[in-house]
């Protein structure tokens, strides 16, 4: 990290941390919509989803997101090309009033013609029937410990908050250079053409400051998310990430130290043989989850399996209790609880 950007890179007192349990994610996009209606319904923001859910395996949003590049290689900042505007999907516009109120003949069609959108390949997955596989993968800004965006910003508009580790783009200081977009390996920074500035997930800091969980967590009907500060050793996020080691970072090889962690998909049927009999083989290749969440995914899956087995046999499991999350307040531990 350059000397200049180190100035912006204060070590936070606490790090806001998210854990997303893929076993409980419904793929319903409630988080996507909750976030959109709260933060990104203004001009220039139609195409951006600070939080979205995609199908894995899949092309992602923007298209071919995983091949984008960015982050660090051998400690050196990498800048990718800017994703094409089309790869995000041009937001469809619809002329409801024309057809329904003004008597225009044309049906209400998406414009431009629909051939790509943020969730275009929903559930298409991989494999051949009946042994196909897919699961849902929510994505958001990782509020990284070593944010590549921060280092890439030529005008020091990006900073990491001392009080909670949230990474923000100062909307006054941003000049729209888009270097942050090139630097982010997760493709979670968006250029707002209406104001020529970069926008991204703000970790719902106005809510955090009031002790209210971020919208994507508080509004998740699947109850799939945990939020808290990792410095709090009693928090679910600390226990899941540091003690149980079942919550793993996505694309940690990009070297940014993400603070959103994923509990890999352990639920799901096994493979069938040609006669339709069940085998003991995992339907989702373990190697695929390792590709996403690193080598430790195998160990995490084993832990999850053996802890669930305890509950199947009527024995207690503190891990399963934590994942069930009987009370929302057990899953959402930010200062000054709701």
């Amino acid at each position: 990290m350059s000397k200049e950007s180190m100035k912006m890179m204060k070590t936070p007192d606490k790090q806001l941390t998210f854990v997303i349990n893929l076993n409980k994610c419904l793929g319903c996009q409630t988080c996507t919509v909750a976030c959109k209606r709260l933060w990104t319904s203004n001009e220039g923001q139609d195409y951006m989803y600070w939080r979205h859910v995609e199908t894995a395996p899949g092309l992602g949003y923007p298209k071919n997101r995983r091949a984008k590049g960015g982050g660090y290689k051998n400690g050196k900042l990498q800048l990718s090309k800017l994703p094409e505007k089309e790869s995000y999907g041009i937001p469809f516009e619809f002329d409801f009033a024309g057809r329904l109120m003004e008597g225009k003949k044309e049906r209400v069609r998406p414009k431009p013609t629909a051939d790509w959108a943020p969730n275009w390949d929903e559930e298409q997955g991989k494999g051949q029937y009946p042994n196909t596989y897919y699961f849902y993968l929510p994505l958001m800004c990782n509020h990284c410990t070593k944010p590549a965006c921060l280092e890439a910003c030529p005008v020091d508009a990006i900073y990491k908050r001392k009080e909670d580790g949230i990474v923000l783009i100062d909307q006054q200081k941003c000049v729209g250079a888009q270097e942050c977009i090139r630097a982010c390996p997760y493709a979670k920074i968006y250029f707002n053409q209406a104001v020529t500035k970069s926008n991204k997930c703000i970790g719902c800091y106005p809510r955090i400051e009031k002790g209210v969980s971020p919208a994507c967590v508080a509004q998740c009907p699947g109850r799939a998310m945990h939020v808290g500060f990792r410095e709090d050793k009693n928090s679910g996020v600390y226990k899941l990430v540091n003690e149980w080691k079942v919550a793993l970072p996505l694309m940690s090889e990009a070297g940014t130290g993400p603070n959103v962690f994923y509990i890999p998909q352990v639920l799901g049927p096994s493979l069938e043989d040609a006669q339709g009999n069940l085998t003991n083989q995992s339907r989702i290749p373990i190697a695929y989850q390792q590709e996403l969440f690193g080598k430790n995914a195998a160990r995490a899956l084993k832990t999850l399996e053996s802890e669930r087995e305890k509950r199947i046999n009527g024995k207690p499991s503190a891990l399963m209790d934590m994942l069930i999350g009987y009370k929302c307040s057990d899953m959402q531990q930010i200062s000054g609880k709701k």
Binding site: L26, T30, G222, I312, G314, I324
Partner: peptide, 22 residues
């Protein structure tokens, strides 16, 4: 249920984590 009963689907996934076979 995960598609058509979104507000309640969590009960099944939580039951699964609690050892219920699905």
């Amino acid at each position: 249920t995960n598609q058509t009963r979104i507000p309640d689907a969590h009960f099944i996934n939580e039951a699964a984590l609690n050892g219920t076979k699905i």
